[in-house]
Each structure stands twice: as C-alpha cells, then as structure tokens.
C-alpha cells in the first residue's frame, strides 16, 4: 500500500525529484527537507491537479518524520514557506490567477490533511478564511476559476472551518448571499454554484437528496 506512489501524484516530476520525494516518504531524515518542501510548494503553485492532493504526501512525510525522529522539521518548513506565499498572495493573484487558485487549493488541502492531535491547526484558520473571503469578493466572483475553487474548498473543509470560527464563516456567507443576490453580470453557472453552496451549508454541510438531484442529475445522465 505504501508503495503505490501513484497515490501521491508525483509522476509529473522529473526523475530526480521523484526519487527525492520517494525517499522523503520513507526515510525523511536522509533528505534535505527544505528542498522537499520547496519542491512540493512550487509544484502545487503550478499544477492544480497536484495541489488538490498535495496534502496527502505532506501528511505522509510529516508522519514518517515524527515516527523516525519525533521531529517536525518538514512541517515547520512547509508551513513557513506557505506563510511566505500567503504574504504575497495579492501580488500572486495579480500576476497569475491560476497560481493564486492553486495556492488556495493547496493551503486548504494542507489544512484538511495536517492535524495536531486530530484537530485542525489553529494557525491556519485565519489565513484560510482570508483566502476564501478574498475569493468571495465581487471582483473574484466574476472569475469562474475562483468561484470553482471557492465552492470546492467549502465543500471539503467548510464544516471543519466553521467549527473553528463560526463568526468568520457567517461573514463569508454574507458575502456569498450578497454576491448571489445583488451582483450584476454574474454567469448563471456562478449563481448555480453559489446557490448550491448556500443550500449546502444551510443543510448542515450536506445536500438533501432532492437538492442533490437538482444540482447533479444533469451530470449523471
């Protein structure tokens, strides 16, 4: 099971990097963990498919390191690198929407996978909210990429986030309702996605079967 590196979606790396990552998964103390964290973050910013699942490989490395030397060097490096990127997020967004969306996907995925004593990391709660709130602002709602990302993240981690800070989730949803109701010129797909996420949260972070049918039946057929 642990050998199925396909799980970690690292085929897109060059061979040398693949070897580095494979070693990091098994024997983290023998590799340069700073390099590993940089490789993972940089790939996540380029490749949205990777950023959706990068939390898994990070989780495995963190576990391996904790087991091997009860260290958390990799986690520290990863989080601090993530923080650096967070500080320049607005620049990133201006430069490349795709990179920005990848970043949000990545940080949310890390939030989802890495836990401290089975609880989400408090340090990431505000930053994740900051990112999602940015995606809910009017200028971002006109970008389908950003809306897609926003609702996907809320589907995945909305419930956990809300438990950590309900007030910020409320504020975020005020923005979403406003966008859905008041913002002119939104694509109908965007309105659909917004409506769905509004219902999703209203139903206790799930859709009842009728709602599910409404939103997804077309896809199934």
């Amino acid at each position: 099971m642990e050998n199925s590196t396909d799980d970690y979606k690292i085929q897109s790396f060059d061979l040398e990097t693949q070897t580095l990552l494979k070693t990091a998964l098994k024997d983290p103390s023998s590799v340069n963990l700073e390099k590993v964290s940089n490789v993972i973050v940089e790939q996540s910013l380029k490749d949205c498919v990777f950023s959706k699942e990068a939390g898994r490989i990070c989780y495995t490395i963190v576990q391996a390191e904790a087991k091997q030397s009860s260290g958390n060097v990799f986690r520290r490096l990863l989080l601090n690198r993530l923080q650096q990127e967070f500080k320049v997020r607005e620049e990133t967004r201006t430069r490349s929407l795709q990179e920005w969306v990848c970043y949000v996907t990545f940080i949310c995925n890390i939030f989802d996978y890495l836990k401290v004593n089975d609880m989400p990391m408090v340090a990431l709660v505000q930053p994740v909210y900051d990112c999602l709130t940015r995606l809910a602002r009017p200028d971002a709602l006109t970008n389908e990429e950003e809306v897609d990302c926003l609702v996907l993240q809320l589907h995945r981690i909305g419930e956990q986030l809300e438990k950590m800070n309900i007030q910020r989730m409320d504020e975020l949803f005020f923005l979403l309702r406003d966008g859905f109701l008041l913002q002119e010129g939104l694509a109908s797909m965007t309105r659909l996605l917004l409506l769905e996420i509004l219902e999703f949260r209203a139903g206790g972070w799930m859709l009842n079967s009728t709602a599910h049918k409404y939103y997804y039946s077309e896809l199934a057929e």
Partner: peptide
C-alpha cells in the same frame, strides 16, 4: 509569528493538557 512555531506551540499546549 511564523506558522511553523505557532503550530508547534499549539501542539505543545495540547500535549501538555493530555
């Protein structure tokens, strides 16, 4: 202020309670 240390502090605090 760095996230790495914040998470370490958090972990330490939770371990402490356990």
């Amino acid at each position: 202020t760095d996230w790495g240390s914040q998470v370490e502090d958090e972990e330490m605090r939770r371990d402490m309670h356990k």
